[in-house]
């Protein structure tokens, strides 16, 4: 996860705020895990496109896999498959997990990010 989020932080000169360490973004969600979207950020064209494709606050989303070269990633949402680049996934903030199953994973995740 961290090996993914670090090169991204350097790619995205904008929209990286101080709280990037404490919030989860879609780009850091490992394959096989589900989460709920909290906020869709980024340039207007991207936000509109993502939201019109059904990726908006409240949508449950699962990362299926990353492409062989690690980027882009494949997502499952609303019963279909969507691929977006990691740079774009980094604009999607995820809601804090509430389900028991994903809490453990998130703790791991927080540890890694802190490290």
């Amino acid at each position: 996860m961290s090996r993914r989020s670090r090169p991204l932080a350097f790619l995205l000169k904008v929209n990286i705020t101080n709280d990037v360490k404490s919030t989860r973004t879609l780009s850091a969600l490992p394959p096989g895990q589900k989460a709920v979207v909290q906020r869709v950020g980024g340039p207007r064209a991207l936000r509109r496109r993502l939201m019109e494709m059904g990726l908006l606050p409240g949508t449950e989303i699962e990362v299926i896999r990353a492409a062989p070269m690690r980027d882009p990633i494949e997502l499952s949402l609303r019963g279909y498959r969507l691929s977006i680049r990691l740079a774009e996934a980094a604009q999607v903030t995820l809601a804090p997990p509430v389900e028991l199953s994903s809490t453990v994973a998130t703790d791991d995740h927080a540890l890694e990010q802190a490290a």
């Binding site: 991207l46 494949e74 969507l82």
Partner: peptide
């Protein structure tokens, strides 16, 4: 210009 984002359906 702004590079269009890749937001692409992977159809069945």
């Amino acid at each position: 210009g702004e590079r269009p984002p890749l937001v692409m359906e992977l159809p069945p």
